[in-house]
Amino acid sequence: MIGIVGIVIIFAMVFGGYVAAGGKMGIILKALPFEMIMIGGAAVGAFVLSNDLPSIKHTVKDIGKVFKGAKWKPSDYRDLLCLLFELIRLARQNPVAIEEHIEAPENSSIFGKYPKILHDHEAVEMICDTMRSASMNYDDPHQVEEVLEKQLEANYHHAMHSSHAMQSIADAMPALGIVAAVLGVIKTMASIDQPPEILGKMIGGALVGTFLGVFLAYGFIGPFATRIKAVVDEDAHFYKLIREVLVANLHNHATNICIEVGRQNTPHHIRPSFSELEEALKAVKSEAA
């Protein structure tokens, strides 16, 4: 919703100010389709040229993040802590019983309580792989933390590709606008024998290309890239929480302490309160009993 509000403000302020200053929309609207074909088409072509098909699909999908915001909400962090609590407690009470949950999480009664987390391949894989490694005596907390950190960095780098791709196009848009404007000037020079009022309109139409390139770059594509980066950064905290809790578990802290370590390392605006988490954990314990 906030993304739509931003778009409305951009259009209202730019074109509202232009009209209020006495500008006429007719010349812009007349030139817009042709300039948009040149600039937008060139931008799309450059984007396709510089990315492979999976990256293109990934970027198109990530545009939705501008309007949807972060995937993980505060309630999801609470659910994640409850899930990790159940898994760690079971692994300590019955190391054999935990195997069915980490080997086939899609059939797990524990993972099944948290469908949103279960459907996230990255989160489930990180949890299951780490707990499986611990059951195979790969339980040095420093080595495991290093492995998880590298995994997080790789996943983050992949998630940031959309932002980088869109920023590259944003950087190119002003230059593409100049290309369209130059073509308009060439067209104007070919009609130099026309009256001044006609030449003025033709030059104005050519300048629409420069305006459009700069407007799209700094008003839309650049902010889209920045917003996608902000959402990726926000969602990265979810996976960092998994790392914190699982590493604390390998240090053989009490289960409640492991969960509290994860809670305290979560940014304040998405961190469940101590009392809220305590109530959720009590519900988990009573259900298990």
Rank of each mutant, 00 (worst) to 15 (best):
M1S: 15
M1E: 14
I9T: 10
I10C: 10
A12F: 15
V14M: 14
G17I: 01
A21S: 05
G23A: 02
M25K: 08
M25L: 15
I28R: 10
K30P: 01
K30I: 09
A31M: 00
L32A: 06
M36Y: 04
G41H: 02
A42P: 05
A42N: 11
A46S: 11
F47S: 08
V48Y: 05
D52E: 13
L53M: 14
P54G: 06
I56Q: 00
T59W: 10
V60R: 07
G64Q: 10
K65H: 06
V66C: 03
K68H: 11
K73T: 07
K73R: 12
S75E: 15
L84F: 08
E86T: 08
I88F: 01
R89G: 12
R89N: 14
A91W: 03
V96R: 14
A97E: 06
H101K: 03
P105G: 00
E106V: 04
S108F: 10
I110H: 06
K113V: 05
K116G: 11
I117M: 12
D120M: 04
E122I: 13
E125I: 12
M126T: 03
T130Y: 03
M136Y: 13
M136H: 15
Y138E: 14
D139L: 08
V144P: 00
E145P: 09
E145A: 15
E145M: 13
L148I: 02
K150P: 00
A154S: 11
Y156W: 12
M160F: 11
M160Y: 14
Q167N: 13
Q167D: 08
S168I: 08
I169M: 01
A170E: 13
P174Y: 07
G177T: 14
V179Q: 05
V182D: 08
G184H: 05
T188F: 07
A190W: 06
D193Y: 09
P196T: 15
L199A: 09
G200Q: 04
K201E: 04
K201T: 09
G204C: 04
A206G: 00
G209A: 04
T210K: 11
L212T: 05
L212S: 02
F215R: 05
L216D: 07
Y218W: 13
G219K: 01
G219E: 04
F224K: 05
A225E: 04
T226P: 01
D233M: 04
D235I: 02
D235T: 03
H237D: 12
F238R: 02
Y239P: 10
I242K: 01
V245P: 04
V245R: 07
L246E: 01
L246K: 02
L250E: 09
H251T: 02
N252C: 12
A254I: 12
I257K: 07
E260N: 13
V261Y: 06
T266I: 09
H269R: 10
I270G: 06
R271F: 00
P272R: 12
P272E: 11
S273R: 05
S273E: 04
E276C: 05
A280W: 05
A283K: 12
A283N: 14
V284G: 07
K285E: 08
S286N: 11
E287R: 09
E287V: 13
